[in-house]
Amino acid sequence: MIQLENLTKTFETPRGVVVAADKVNMTVPTGEICVLLGPSGCGKTTALKMINRLIRPTSGRILINGEDTADRNTIELRRQIGYVIQQIGLFPNMTVEENICVVPRMLGWEAKPAKARAAELIDLVGLDPHHFLYRYPKELSGGQQQRIGVIRALAADPPVMLMDEPFGAIDPINREIIQNEFLKMQATLKKTIMFVSHDIDEAVKMGDKIAIFRGGRIEQYDTPDRILSHPVNAFVADFVGADRTLKRLRLVTAEMIADPGTPAVARGARPQEALQAAKAHGGRTVIVIDANHRPVAYATVEELSGAHGTVGDFAHPLPATVPARADLRAVVSEMFANDVMWLACTDDQGRFAGVVTQPAVTAMLGQSSGQPLTN
């Protein structure tokens, strides 16, 4: 857990005293990601750098897991906090493995466990240890270098990580990939992370909490959903954007609002059997599945009424399916692309997992953010 208590930083300038951080108060629970967001010069990077004492506070306290960092040796403190910056800063004369092992070796780790840790982490971010551990930074793409920079900060298993626009210099495709890999890794490692960003979409995707800064102060500190649905003032509303309702689509996956009870029948099922299943459910559609329970087609109640033969004789191919884990932004995009009002969802094995509809999406967006985003 990270606690900032009345954290203040002032600088003397020829024009007078400048307040970079003005009584910042916030608590980041253990295992959560907090994104610091705001315009340039708002104090978010200053607040981040005070945590590992790259900038010394003028007043206030910083506690990590209940311990006041002012009582810690600066070098020891920094070695126990992972730090990732946009410029990466890999040592060009060291291999990837040597770069990752820098801090563990400084902390006295033996070579064997340090190397094992490097191999474990590089695998976590989707890079093959056999192909990448012995390369030099110049032999890697920018996106690959950024991944190494992230896991180097994790090598000594620090309880806290500080990240200053870590993906800002990466192209959009690689940024999305790295963000996804990082979130998978965080689901396993559960570090306490402070993350500076300028990008509201990145903040919504990455953060458990978001702190919106202005003029050295926190305007709002809350969950992404609360900030998007209930901005506390005009500044926050303008900053997160007029499309903030649509941004909430990132926060919900298809499986959270899908109807798993939509009837599914085999191709060889009799129309009357499928019709009874549809009526029992109260819906207008039946999903047709193959032998592996994968959705492949559909039929309507109107088509089933009075039909003969099997459902497969007149079922229509599905225009598309979506993974149940996909966020609703991707789901709605797929609906628009195929001009449909609903889509079948699939689980990680490709099996039928329910149907998500446009009315269900609309209902979700209309929910009060104080209510859980569930069916």
Rank of each mutant, 00 (worst) to 15 (best):
Q3S: 10
R15L: 15
D22K: 07
M26L: 15
V35H: 09
L36S: 10
G43M: 05
K44H: 11
I64R: 13
N65I: 12
E67G: 10
D68G: 10
A70T: 15
E76D: 15
R78V: 11
Y83T: 05
V84Q: 07
V84S: 06
Q86V: 08
M94V: 00
V102P: 02
P104K: 03
R105I: 06
G108H: 03
E110C: 06
A111D: 15
R117M: 00
A119P: 01
A119Q: 00
G126E: 04
L127A: 04
P129W: 01
H130L: 08
E139K: 03
L140R: 07
L140Y: 01
S141M: 07
Q144T: 05
Q144V: 02
Q145L: 01
V150H: 06
I151L: 07
R152D: 09
L154C: 09
P159Q: 12
L162H: 10
E165Q: 11
N174A: 15
N174D: 13
N180D: 14
L183K: 04
L183E: 02
K184R: 12
M185P: 03
A187K: 14
A187T: 03
A187Q: 06
A187I: 06
A187S: 08
M194P: 08
V196E: 07
D199Y: 04
E202I: 04
K209N: 14
I212N: 06
G215E: 09
G216K: 08
T223W: 05
R226W: 12
S229D: 12
H230N: 14
A234P: 13
F235L: 12
D238T: 09
D238E: 14
G241D: 07
D243G: 03
G261P: 11
A264E: 05
A269N: 04
H281W: 13
H281I: 08
H281P: 06
G282S: 05
G282T: 02
V286P: 00
V286H: 02
D290Q: 06
A291G: 10
H293D: 14
R294A: 03
P295L: 02
Y298I: 01
Y298F: 10
T300L: 03
S305I: 15
G306R: 10
T310M: 11
G312N: 02
A315R: 03
H316E: 08
P317R: 10
P323W: 12
R325V: 14
L328M: 07
A330C: 10
V332N: 09
N338I: 08
D339W: 05
M341N: 13
W342Y: 09
A344Q: 00
T346C: 01
D348K: 10
Q349G: 13
G350K: 06
R351Q: 14
F352S: 00
F352A: 00
F352N: 05
V355D: 01
A360F: 00
L365V: 05
G366D: 03
G366T: 04
S369Y: 13
G370F: 14
P372W: 04
L373V: 11
T374Y: 03
